[in-house]
């Protein structure tokens, strides 16, 4: 009898795996499009004016949730995105979810908040390169010029009619992370491939 794989990690398929090769094929030195699959995402709700909530988040993630609207903070390979006045999204590499959630759930709940695993909700697309902004500007109503959209800014908005969180993570070259719902990911990736085609060498 053939071996049956019971390792869930070997079986899982990311939302954009099926068109990953086309994203690679479209990428050029001017703009690259990549999916970062399976990133751990934890939704945080709580009152940032409470010291206990900030302590709980900081001890687990290494950094307190950002208080300034529409900003993200980074601590090594972890980041916290501001989504609303009492809502954040913690993002960490694959495989860290169980550990982080174990550290967050209890202390955050004690501080009157909640920490929920949202990993499967969204996937991350990274658009990077000198023309990354040009690609996104085709379908995004925000002013993405660095003077209006500096590194560390994150907004919930629409891109090609799909709801995304758009985070700018770097200036040289300009790099954006798009957090898109799994069911919209394929549509958005197809749109990005089409939008990036003209920048291909």
């Amino acid at each position: 009898m053939a071996d049956i794989t019971t390792d869930a990690k070997a079986l899982r398929v990311s939302p954009l795996e099926v068109i990953g090769h086309r994203m690679v094929a479209t990428s050029s030195p001017r703009v690259t499009i990549n999916e970062i699959p399976f990133e751990t995402q934890i939704g945080l709700r709580g009152d940032a004016s409470k010291a206990a909530f900030n302590r709980a988040v900081k001890s687990a993630l290494g950094v307190a949730p950002p208080k300034e609207a529409c900003t993200a903070v980074e601590a090594g390979d972890r980041r916290i995105l501001w989504l609303g006045p009492d809502e954040w999204l913690a993002v960490a590499p694959d495989d860290t979810g169980a550990d982080l959630l174990g550290k967050l759930e209890g202390p955050v709940a004690k501080a009157g908040g909640a920490a929920i695993d949202l990993t499967a909700n969204r996937t991350v697309i990274v658009v990077s390169g000198p023309d990354a902004r040009g690609v996104l500007e085709k379908g995004c109503l925000h002013d993405l010029h660095p003077r209006a959209f500096p590194t560390g800014r994150v907004v919930g908005t629409l891109l090609a009619k799909s709801q995304i969180f758009l985070e700018k993570t770097g200036d040289k070259p300009e790099t954006f992370r798009l957090y898109v719902r799994a069911s919209f990911a394929r549509h958005l990736a197809e749109w990005l491939i089409d939008a990036a085609a003209e920048f291909a060498a």
Binding site: A69, G84, G156
Partner: peptide, 8 residues
């Protein structure tokens, strides 16, 4: 309501 932003 800021549906696609902060949802408030």
């Amino acid at each position: 309501v800021h549906t696609h932003g902060c949802r408030r």
